[in-house]
Amino acid sequence: MRLKGGDSFVFGRGGEELIACADAGVPVTIVPGVTSAISVPAMAGIPVTHRGVAHDFTVLTGHLAPSNPGSLIDWPSLGGSRGTIVVLMGLRHLAEIAQTLITHGRDPGTPAAVVQEGTTSTQRQVRAPLAGIAEAAEAAGLRTPVITVIGDVVGALPQA
């Protein structure tokens, strides 16, 4: 048995493990989890979509900087989008991610939040405009694991 938090098919190597098991003749039963890309923002009071605010959301990994030639993300399209952007594993590159989105059209004043250790008793979050979210996260001393949410949904609901 392999038990993993979240959904192993969302940046969790579940597909690679399934292939390895199939190649080895090991039978597999998949039990999907709830991805942290949705559950962590929800626990922080942030819906990833909200009527009249955001009709779509994109989940991406930030483990590679936008300037990295190995990045497969279409940054110009994301910068020009109006939907919510959820970044997993992106704290180290958050300043470059924010600047790249702004360069490609996202308003620097777009609300953003970084949630550390989401869904745990030690969950913390900071909120700031996109142009200052990396500095706010650093000033707060946030460390991995974090989920970053970018979009008007961050301010859609009153904070509890």
Rank of each mutant, 00 (worst) to 15 (best):
A65G: 10
N68L: 09
S8W: 03
Q159R: 07
V53C: 04
V10M: 07
A156Q: 01
K4I: 13
P145H: 00
M89Q: 02
A128P: 00
A44Y: 01
T110I: 06
T103P: 05
R124N: 02
A156R: 00
S67A: 04
G70V: 03
E16Y: 03
S71D: 08
A140W: 02
G62E: 01
T144Y: 02
A131Q: 15
G151F: 05
V53Y: 06
R51C: 09
A24M: 13
Q159D: 13
A42H: 14
E16C: 12
V28S: 06
V10I: 15
T122Q: 13
G83W: 01
A137L: 05
I97L: 07
S81P: 02
V86K: 05
L64T: 04
R82Q: 14
F57R: 13
I133F: 02
G12M: 11
P158L: 10
D23P: 02
S121N: 12
P32R: 08
A131D: 15
S36E: 03
W75T: 03
P76N: 10
V153I: 02
G33I: 06
V126N: 00
S36L: 04
V31S: 12
S81D: 01
A112L: 09
P27I: 13
P41Q: 10
P158H: 07
D74G: 09
T103H: 15
Q125I: 10
L64G: 11
V154R: 05
